[in-house]
Nucleic acid binder design. Structure first.
Lengths: 216, 216
DNA sequence: ACCTGAACACCGTTCAAGT
DNA sequence: ACCTGAACACCGTTCAAGT
């Protein structure tokens, strides 16, 4: 033990986040993280069951600085600000952003943000079950859009081709102004669609008494 | 070369799909796929640049049997049927479903399905740029929901906890009927939210002449 | 010129050997 | 009892050696 400070889960997660931000996702191996901490790779296993558990902690740590939206704002504005802030926070840590997008938000910060979302959706007028489902839909969309942003920006040029390929299809008129896959614009547009949809769903609940929203 | 048939990209992709369906995603290594074909692992590299390119071909192959929706149906029903069929097709191939969810749909079948989506969105009244953006939002949502279904079903019990954890939060009243993350119900609900949102977006286009839909 | 397979530079994790 | 690090069973890919 040449490190002066003792090994803790938090300290390990911080070191892993540092390694990922500096050297990219593939560098976040148990061996490299241990090297960053100047400890034996196996020492990490005394604080985390396996690599997946360690990365979950790192993903949650990346959400630590997501601010909670102004409680005085309208429910839809609150959701928009929060989900956008999650995307921004993840993109500030490119090493772990892909993992944030692929794992359940069950860490301390993930649960905190989920509670804010649920409160906003309940305020919108959704019953509990639909609020939970709407939250999961928002999480799913945010996760995928985030994963696309990461892939398009750092790893995979093929995502950039998607807009071009589809704009060139028979059905698409020429001259369409394209938005890059994974861009902030594209993210905001899809988020608006979902919030539109939630608003419509909530309207059915509160506006029409005998509505049967489950019917197709 | 003990195999009677010659190596082709299609034949390789079929063998890889078989391996993945039989032994799961981790089994889809270059070595195992080569063993399935009774050829040298390096022989695969003469048909695919790298493993990622091979998996892209497998993911597209898994979309081969997605039927095109009835052209006579309404645009929103067409989108719902198509996106649901993509999910079903991917889940029939658990080995590659996760990859389907993480990669751009740029293969032959992905482009075919994208063209159907674009046509439906254009019919809805969206201008080209918004149709492309809406398609990308649908792809993002479907990919993430699919990834969650795969993770929840085969790999990761933590996704199952999400509904329970959030239903137990202060904001959520008790007795909420929970839908399992990744379930068909949950998928359909989120898809309906997006289609609701697209309908609202299209309504702004056609219904209100001087609307400024980009304003928050 | 083409193809093969040994070798390189890694992995996550197990487990026996040390203290 | 605790900790370490050698070892196991793999990877994707390179590249030199064979034919």
């Amino acid at each position: 033990m040449s490190r002066a400070t003792a090994l803790t889960p938090d300290r390990i997660a911080e070191a892993a986040l540092r390694v990922g931000d500096r050297d990219g996702p593939p560098a976040m191996s148990m061996r490299r993280i241990a090297a960053e901490l100047r400890c034996d790779p196996m020492a990490l296993y005394r604080h985390f069951a396996d690599r997946e558990a360690l990365l979950d902690a790192v993903a949650d740590l990346a959400m630590a600085d997501v601010p909670e939206p102004d409680p005085a704002a309208a429910w839809d504005a609150r959701l928009r600000v929060l989900v956008t802030a999650v995307r921004d926070a993840a993109l500030r840590h490119p090493g772990i952003a892909g993992h944030v997008a692929s794992r359940p938000p069950l860490g301390a910060h993930g649960r905190r943000l989920g509670a804010v979302m649920l409160a906003a959706l309940t305020e919108a007028g959704l019953p509990p079950a639909k609020a939970v489902q709407s939250m999961q839909a928002l999480i799913a969309y945010a996760a995928a859009a985030l994963a696309m942003a990461v892939a398009a920006g750092t790893r995979d040029e093929r995502w950039h081709q998607v807009s071009e390929v589809f704009a060139a299809l028979p059905g698409a008129p020429p001259g369409a102004q394209l938005h890059v896959v994974g861009s902030a614009d594209q993210f905001a547009f899809g988020l608006r669609l979902l919030l539109n949809g939630i608003r419509a769903e909530a309207g059915l609940m509160t506006g029409e008494a005998g509505a049967t929203p489950g019917a197709q």
